[in-house]
Every structure is written in structure tokens, then in C-alpha cells.
Amino acid sequence: MGSATPPDPSDPTSPPVDGRRPGYLYRQVAAHLAAHPDQVFKVGELPTAIAARSTGAVFEALKKMAAGGYATHTTGPHRFQITQAGIDAAGTLPPPAQRTPRQGRRGAGRRQPVTRPNGDLYFPRKLAGATDVDVLRRLREKRIPVLLYGPPGTGKTALVEAAFPDLLTVAGTGDTVVEDFLGNFIPLPDGGFEFVYGPLVTAMRDGRALLVDDATLIPPKVLAVLYPAMDGRRVITIPGYRNERVDAADGFYVIAGHNPGVHGAILTEALASRFDVHIEVTTDWDLARHLGVPSPAVAAAVALNADLAAGRVSWAPQLRELLGFARVRKTLGLPAAAANLAGRAPEEDREQVLAALRQHFGTEITPLTLGKQR
């Protein structure tokens, strides 16, 4: 005889547990998240906070919230934060997820890739009960600015390009100036000058999306040029060109990218407060495998990212480096690809990176280096 399925305290269809009503744990979890709407919780923090016995049952309740769009769910480690929909639901269980028809074993339930402007494919990921691409498009419709944050190379720019085909971009550095947003005079062959409008002005007038990439590398006084365009005024002036007034057309939208931990990156309160939604973007390890990255390389990257989170290293491979690994492997072979990945690590982290690669590949690996003449 098979063993009976244990009751799930987060499921209203399960029998009562310890005399309490079905679904009681879900409501406890939802109520605690709703009482702390600005806090992101790790799974292990909640059982103690709500006096629950089972971390696994709490995790199931959190996943139900995320599947219904009532909470955001990020991994590495698993973390959850309540959404406005979850607050409005007041602890009510989300409706059952709708199953999509299976279309054979391969690719069953897989989200369709989106083509980026450069022709590359972007594979959408789950976010707030939908896909990341759909969520960004819905937020744009409601004029809710988004700040994407995470290590370089995790796919922030690729996501925005997939979501917004009309995208314009300002690549932020410490040398970015106001004119990079508004425009500047350029010399003409006849010796005269012509004013050329910048991407902020073009995006406002044409109703396009504007990505401010690496926004936290841009000096705060320069970023201030964005703020009147993003708030209720939705208007700016161009001091360097007759104080010309620019009004934002419908569709104009600002989204920004931030790389925490990068030298020189400063997320000021003024900048953070302008973005109502902050979304962490981490590397999608399953996607890396799907795109042909060998499992040992993915496993080494996962281990190194755990070290990065713990502060033991300052660098770890992300999706960008892993895709580069796959390309080098196809061209030069697996040993050269592993050696190249080791060589991409900063000098201070190279020994730890080499140790991880050697462990997971099971072979001796050294950084890619020129040898003797043949």
C-alpha cells in the first residue's frame, strides 16, 4: 500500500491540521509579507517570524503567492516580496494556475523566445505570475518606472531590448554629461554648427522607451535632468538650446539598470525613489544549459556565485561569460574555453576561479597563455 499524501497547510483542499482550518499557513505568510511590504524575505526567515513548524510548508505557500502574482520570487537564494496585488488580496488564495496544452515532450510549456533588435533571441523568465517581458510592458502602460539591478552580464539590457523594440539607450559612465541626454552642437563642413537632439529628447517627443544603462555610474547632478521628465510634469527644457521646452508624448518611458558592487556605482536615494519597482536580475542557469553551456561550466559558475554572495570573491561568471564560453568551445574546443574563462577572472580572484573549474571539470586548468614557438 502507498503511503498517504501528507496534508499541506498552505492548501485549502487539504484536511485540517492540528484543528486549524485549511490554508491557515498561507494566510499567515501572506499577512506577514503584507505587514512588511518593503522587505524582501528569505525562506528561512519566515518560520520563526510566524511561529511555523515547517520551512517546507512556508516555502510552498510562498511559491503559491508568486505563481498567482501576489509576490515576486528571486533565486540564489530564494527570496520573496509581496506585490500590490498580494496586498489587495488580503491573504486570499490565488486562483489555480491555468495549464497550457502540452505540445509534445520537447519544449512543453516553454515560453516563446523574443527577437531582440540585433536578431538574437531572448528567452523570457517568470516574474510576478507572468513573464518578465510582459511585466515590463504592463508597467510601461501604467508609467511605472523600473530599476533593474544585478551583476554585469546577467541579461538586464537583453531583457529591456526584448520588451521594447523602440528602445533608445544612454550608456552611463562617470564621464556622462547632461549633453549626452539632451543633445549638443556639432560642427558642419561649412564651418557652422547644428544642434542635434539627444536620446532623452527624442524618446520624449517620439513616445519611445529610454534605457539608462549603468545609471549609478552617472554623476547625480547629471541624472537630475531625468527627474522632471519622469514625474507628473513630464516636461523638460534644453538650457543649451534656447531653453526649448520638450513635452513627453504618450509611450515615453524610462527604465534604468544598476550593477551593485561595481566600483564607482552609487545608488542615491534621489535615484532609487524615482523608480517604483526594483527587480533583481540574476543569471538563469537553466537557460545557460539550454543554450549549450556544458554542465561543468555551469556548476562552477553556480559555486563561484555562492562565493560571491558570501563575499569570498569579487567576481563570478554570469550568463554573458557562460555564453562566451560556449562560443569559444565551439571554435577552439573545451580545454581552451575553460582556460579562457579562467583568464577572464580578475587577478585577485583567479586562484579561486581556477580551483572551482578544476573541481568541476576534473582536469588541470591554467589561464589561456601563449606557449613556445613551434
Results as ranks from 00 to 15, higher is better:
250 D>P: 07
229 A>P: 08
161 E>A: 09
232 G>T: 08
57 A>S: 05
77 P>Q: 05
214 D>G: 11
276 D>E: 14
296 P>Q: 02
169 T>A: 10
137 R>Q: 03
270 A>S: 10
258 H>P: 03
335 P>D: 03
264 G>E: 00
47 P>A: 07
36 H>I: 06
254 V>K: 02
227 Y>G: 14
88 D>G: 05
69 G>D: 13
113 P>W: 06
25 L>M: 09
272 A>G: 10
259 N>G: 05
126 K>T: 06
159 L>K: 08
18 D>G: 14
141 E>M: 08
268 T>Q: 01
36 H>A: 10
98 Q>R: 05
293 V>M: 00
312 R>I: 04
15 P>C: 07
307 D>K: 10
79 R>L: 09
277 V>W: 02
159 L>I: 09
234 R>T: 12
176 T>I: 05
212 V>L: 07
92 T>W: 07
363 T>A: 09
34 A>R: 01
223 L>K: 04
202 T>I: 14
196 V>P: 08
289 R>C: 05
145 P>C: 07
249 A>T: 00
200 L>A: 09
45 E>R: 14
283 T>C: 14
177 V>Y: 12
74 T>G: 03
77 P>F: 00
134 D>F: 15
108 A>S: 13
4 A>S: 15
309 A>H: 12
125 R>M: 03
317 P>D: 00
262 V>S: 08
279 I>G: 00
207 G>E: 03
264 G>Q: 00
374 R>W: 14
103 Q>E: 09
296 P>G: 05
286 D>A: 15
265 A>R: 07
256 A>I: 00
101 P>V: 04
29 V>H: 04
120 D>S: 11
151 P>D: 10
216 T>Y: 02
332 L>Y: 11
270 A>T: 09
247 D>K: 11
300 A>W: 03
2 G>L: 15
13 T>V: 07
314 S>I: 01
373 Q>E: 13
359 Q>S: 13
204 M>L: 10
330 K>E: 12
232 G>W: 10
33 L>A: 03
268 T>R: 01
96 P>T: 04
207 G>L: 08
34 A>M: 03
230 M>S: 04
21 R>M: 11
175 D>L: 10
348 E>L: 12
102 R>W: 13
282 T>F: 13
154 T>S: 05
111 R>L: 14
374 R>P: 15
66 A>M: 13
116 R>M: 06
162 A>D: 11
316 A>D: 08
209 A>F: 01
178 V>D: 04
38 D>N: 06
154 T>D: 00
253 Y>C: 04
